[in-house]
Design a protein around this nucleic acid. Structure first.
Lengths: 191, 191
DNA sequence: CATCGTCTATCTACTAGTAGATAGTTTCAC
DNA sequence: GTGAAACTATCTACTAGTAGATAGACGATG
């Protein structure tokens, strides 16, 4: 069974926003990519704002599921942290950065509802990462820093900044790893 | 003496790109802000691409001068690093992030010449910061990490990511400090 | 008078969004 | 079951507005 039209629209829109940004993609672009007329896209998503809002909600759920999968499947906190970092690395192969990182750059031109959803994404991600850091601290696999929340914010900042810096380099995933891995190694080693 | 028209254009364009992004600002916006017709802006900068290219060159020079000032004026490497970090904090009050961070988000839609200039900016900044880290290491004010270049990349990634995360929060500069300062304190302490 | 900077007026291409029609499916009353 | 009504998903054709860009006129300055 093929994907529904609205799902195709969301997928293409996600790719475009993550690689080009909110202001640089249009209904005409989507229309061309999936072989459907502009008006048909408006049928599924009446306005661009609504499309992007749905997009962020959908992205937040998918990202949340990825985090759940990490928690459930893998043993050590170190491995979990590694997998979390690799979530940010993997989009780079297609020239994509985190949807909400891109939308944060475009923050000033977003409608309020989308801004709120982006903020909610970050709070959720920070909370998840802070919990992971806390588990690792309790399991004594890395040092206990004063505030797991602040530590989580710092890590997410690093991951997002590394995504930006890695763009425009020929081998983006490798550039990302070069920045992120030494940091993870030194910052979260047992000593 | 007032600023020249072309300088006014560059200043307004810089503000707009740093707050809204490349695709979300227009000649019409600039025209309105400085009270001049669109056609007059084309007289000074025939195309948007040329305007943005000049903008990045101008920004690179200005940023470079700020770095020079830091090197020359202040005593300790710690203070120099702090001032460098604060360069990234200060634009946040006006909702601005680093011009080249924004343009990296918009990377896919930029003409080649602008992409090259943005890359050059990062290389220059990394080199400057790596040199500062090396001086601090030799002066034994902080530990010597294996590669100052990689360390510099990581720091810049953190600063840019922190800028993104701090947007959309009510007091952005404070949010920026909350992320960056603990990191600088722990990562670059003498022990 | 010639250059500089600005203007008005215009252009083409594109933007998001709408109107109205249509083909195919589903629902439901009889 | 049949037929009417409603719904889904698409289309063509259009709107009003904006994008970057250009041609040519105008006034000032030196």
């Amino acid at each position: 069974m093929e994907k529904s039209t609205s799902q195709q629209i969301l997928d293409v829109a996600q790719d475009m926003v993550r690689s080009r940004g909110y202001s640089a993609f249009s209904y005409a672009d989507i229309s061309e990519r999936i072989g459907i007329r502009k008006a048909s896209i408006h049928y599924h998503f009446p306005s661009k704002d609504e499309l992007v809002l749905k997009l962020v909600q959908y992205y937040r759920e998918a990202f949340s599921r990825s985090c759940d999968r990490i928690v459930q499947s893998v043993a050590s906190p170190q491995q979990q942290l590694m997998q979390f970092a690799n979530l940010y690395r993997d989009g780079l192969r297609q020239g994509q950065i985190c949807l909400c990182a891109m939308l944060t750059a475009d923050f000033a031109v977003l409608p309020q509802a989308v801004q709120d959803e982006v903020q909610a994404f970050f709070q959720q991600t920070e909370a998840w990462l802070a919990a992971l850091l806390q588990r690792g601290c309790e399991a004594k696999v890395w040092p206990c820093y004063p505030s797991p929340e602040v530590e989580a914010k710092g890590l997410i900042a690093l991951l997002q900044g590394a995504q930006l810096l890695a763009r425009g380099v020929e081998d983006s995933p490798a550039a990302f790893e070069q920045i992120v891995y030494p940091f993870l190694a030194s910052r979260l080693s047992k000593a």
